[in-house]
Computed example of a mutant assay.
Amino acid sequence: MSPDNYQEAEDWLESELRDSMDEEVELEMEDAILSMKIREIYRKAHGETIPRADYFRSLLRLQAELIKLQDWVVHNNEKVVVIFEGRDSAGKGGVIKRITQRLNPRVVRTVALPAPSDREKSQWYFQRYVPHLPAGGEIVLFDRSWYNRAGVERVMGFADDDQVEQFFQDVPEFERMLVRSGIRLVKYWFSITDEEQQMRFLIRIHDPLKQWKLSPMDLQSRIRWEDYTRAKEEMFDRTNIPEAPWYIVPGNDKKRARLNCIDHLLTLFPYEEIESEPVVLPERVYNSDYERHVLPPELYVPSKY
């Protein structure tokens, strides 16, 4: 390779790294479009968080370890389920984004089911979750899960007392069955304070890019904060089993919550780096008889930027 080509390759790699960091900054900008008054109140309530450079450095290191975990899961045909539960706006979606950001979507997928249909309501409660469980070499992240019955369905009256009691009797054995089948099951609860949830809801109300995150059910959760607390406490008491314990992630500081959760997740698996064959880029084949066709301009996306 000539010196000019080396320089071009260096410039290209530097550009790619910058683009990668831009993606991180783009994700972080989800908090940027706030009214100045809300932002000022939020900062006063929180104080200092992790410096941006330290946060990115730690996040990238952990994401590199997640790639090793992914390769280990594929190589050993492991099956992994990670459940993310917590109050509305507690940060579940944020950590899921950071976990999946650099992983292979064919290996790691997120499941966020909508409200059950009338047909699903007539089925065995766990039935609609079963098709989403992993096969060998897969990781499934549940952004809310069958624990809806112990939380929102119970508090909002979508499930009666008998259905809730049946759930509590069934779920420990259901999860033991999953573990016996070879699934590694991890359960996280993201915990935030009453004041923090109120602040995050206000942010969503004042940020047009986040208003879609607020549903009527979310607003009801503010009214029924204590009901949700009581439901959560009983859920922990009756479903925290040795085969699948709960892990609580303090979530008031988003950045720390993300790093702590990913770091803890990595400690739960005996993964190791999997050796792979070196990747060698093959030489391009040129055919002197081939003449590239000129495509009509209307096929191209307009270059507005």
Rank of each mutant, 00 (worst) to 15 (best):
I50Y: 02
K255H: 13
I262Q: 00
W189H: 02
Q166Y: 15
Q211A: 12
G86Y: 03
G182P: 03
L27V: 08
R222Y: 12
V186E: 01
F190W: 10
R43F: 11
E173I: 07
A231I: 08
V130P: 00
I183Y: 00
K97F: 09
I248Q: 02
D19N: 13
I192K: 01
T49S: 15
E26S: 12
L214F: 10
R52N: 07
S2M: 06
E78K: 12
Q101T: 13
V152I: 15
W189F: 11
R292D: 05
S276C: 06
S35G: 09
E138Y: 11
V81L: 08
G137F: 00
T193K: 06
L295G: 04
E14V: 10
I262Y: 03
P216R: 01
A64M: 12
E173C: 09
I96G: 03
V107C: 03
H206N: 08
P172E: 01
W12E: 15
V279I: 10
E173M: 08
D71M: 07
E78Q: 07
R119V: 10
E65N: 09
Y290Q: 13
R256P: 04
P245C: 06
N5Y: 05
S145R: 00
R102W: 08
D31G: 15
N260E: 14
E120W: 04
D289F: 14
E153D: 13
E234F: 09
A9G: 07
V152C: 05
S181V: 00
I223P: 04
E291K: 13
K37I: 13
K255E: 14
F142K: 00
S2F: 05
R43T: 14
I203V: 14
D19I: 11
V25W: 08
V82G: 02
E14L: 09
R52H: 15
R256I: 10
R184M: 05
G86A: 08
F236V: 06
E78T: 06
E275L: 07
T229G: 13
N240F: 09
D11I: 09
V171T: 04
D161S: 12
M199R: 15
C261S: 13
H293E: 13
Y300P: 04
L299Q: 11
G251Y: 11
D170R: 10
R57A: 13
E273P: 05
K92S: 02
K210H: 11
L59M: 10
F167C: 03
N240E: 04
Y228C: 01
P116S: 03
V74D: 00
D4Y: 05
F190I: 10
I67Q: 04
R149G: 02
L60P: 07
D170W: 03
P3Y: 05
M29A: 14
D160I: 11
W189K: 03
I33F: 08
S117Q: 07
Y247C: 08
Q220C: 05
W212P: 00
R106P: 07
D162N: 15
S181D: 03
A115T: 15
G94Q: 04
Y228F: 14
L185N: 02
E175M: 01
S58D: 07
F84P: 01
E24N: 09
M36W: 12
K68W: 06
